[in-house]
């Protein structure tokens, strides 16, 4: 499959990326190259009812219901770019 301009724009939107026209052209080719490789798994003839999501053998891991460490407000806000006292400032999201 070959990625169209619209398809690259669609996946860029899903990935929350803004792309320049030049980048869109480049990724049309590059994403198509990768997808051509990925398509190889579609041809494999296997049972399709047995899946593996993770190799961990753990099941139902419970942790004790108490806290051992608490972060301070100062720590939580330490890496935020735009803040005021106890708040992180973001652009308006409700009109």
């Amino acid at each position: 499959m070959k990625f169209t301009k619209e398809e690259v724009e669609h996946v860029a939107n899903l990935a929350r990326l803004e792309l320049t026209d030049e980048e869109i052209k480049k990724y049309q080719l590059q994403l198509s190259d990768i997808l051509k490789e990925i398509d190889k798994i579609l041809k494999v003839d296997i049972k399709e009812d047995d899946i593996l999501i993770t190799t961990t053998k753990n099941s139902n891991v419970y942790i004790t219901d108490n806290y051992s460490e608490l972060l301070t407000k100062e720590e939580v806000l330490k890496n935020a770019n735009n803040k005021d006292l106890d708040y992180i400032i973001v652009p308006e999201v409700i009109e």
């Binding site: 990925i38 798994i41 579609l42 494999v44 399709e48 047995d50 899946i51 593996l52």
Partner: peptide, 11 residues
Amino acid sequence: YYHKALCLRKQ
């Protein structure tokens, strides 16, 4: 793609 990959990973 993803479901097929999970099956193949099992095999």
